[in-house]
Simulated assay, not measured.
Amino acid sequence: MSKVLVLNASYEPLNITSWRRAVVLVIKGKAEQVEHNGRVIYADFPFPTVIRLRHYVRVPYKEIPLTRRNLLHRDNHTCQYCGTGSEGLTLDHVVPRSRGGGDSWENIVTACVRCNVKKGSRTPKEASMPLRNPPRKPHSSLYFEIARHVRGGVHQEWRKYVIGLN
């Protein structure tokens, strides 16, 4: 069945849960319904798609590892220069390593082999190859799961609760 986005009291995404768990939290008064999809579970109770906890929950910060898989997820498995979604994507340093560019979320993007070779050891500006999306560090590991749902066209209403989701 459908999934529900759980927000902290501060509207920060916390989790994705089942619709049943979300309904229990709303009925018990521990959460309030923020968004619904128009369907009803029973009279005057719409089917929730986003709920917000009434009390703030402290969540410890967890560093997201800079891995090829996470970079591909962040960039939606597409070349950040031409937009193709080919199988043979490579990783490209926006500021090349030969010019002091390091391995960071803000300096690595996915690129097709053709664009990576064309750019060479130049910056995107020097190569006249603007980036489609500026590289940025994801704010949480939950970002990837939310992005998958939104990009899949399932929960477009979640988009406004996630920073950096395009």
Score class of each variant (00 low, 15 high):
141 S>R: 14
151 R>M: 10
114 R>K: 14
125 K>A: 14
146 I>T: 03
132 R>M: 12
152 G>M: 01
145 E>F: 12
119 K>G: 10
132 R>S: 06
150 V>R: 03
155 H>I: 08
110 T>K: 03
145 E>S: 11
107 N>D: 07
125 K>W: 09
144 F>M: 06
157 E>G: 02
110 T>R: 00
147 A>D: 05
126 E>M: 00
141 S>G: 14
151 R>G: 02
109 V>L: 02
143 Y>D: 06
120 G>H: 00
136 R>H: 14
113 V>L: 15
138 P>K: 09
142 L>Q: 06
119 K>S: 03
114 R>M: 08
149 H>N: 12
159 R>E: 12
146 I>R: 02
155 H>R: 12
154 V>Q: 15
149 H>G: 05
107 N>I: 01
115 C>F: 02
131 L>S: 03
135 P>K: 09
123 T>C: 02
133 N>T: 15
107 N>T: 00
136 R>W: 14
114 R>F: 04
131 L>I: 01
150 V>D: 04
130 P>H: 04
132 R>W: 03
126 E>L: 04
113 V>W: 13
124 P>H: 11
131 L>E: 04
144 F>C: 05
118 K>C: 06
119 K>H: 05
128 S>M: 14
155 H>Y: 15
132 R>I: 13
147 A>M: 15
119 K>C: 08
157 E>N: 04
125 K>V: 08
149 H>W: 13
148 R>D: 13
155 H>W: 11
135 P>F: 11
123 T>G: 01
140 S>C: 00
115 C>P: 10
152 G>R: 10
127 A>I: 00
159 R>H: 05
130 P>V: 06
107 N>G: 11
125 K>E: 14
129 M>Y: 06
127 A>R: 05
141 S>T: 08
148 R>K: 15
141 S>A: 12
115 C>H: 10
142 L>N: 08
117 V>T: 13
138 P>L: 08
107 N>S: 00
131 L>K: 08
157 E>R: 09
150 V>H: 10
127 A>W: 03
141 S>F: 14
146 I>H: 01
125 K>I: 10
108 I>V: 15
131 L>W: 08
158 W>T: 05
110 T>N: 06
114 R>L: 14
130 P>E: 05
143 Y>W: 15
138 P>S: 00
119 K>Y: 05
138 P>D: 02
151 R>T: 07
120 G>R: 02
153 G>E: 00
138 P>C: 02
114 R>W: 09
111 A>C: 07
128 S>V: 13
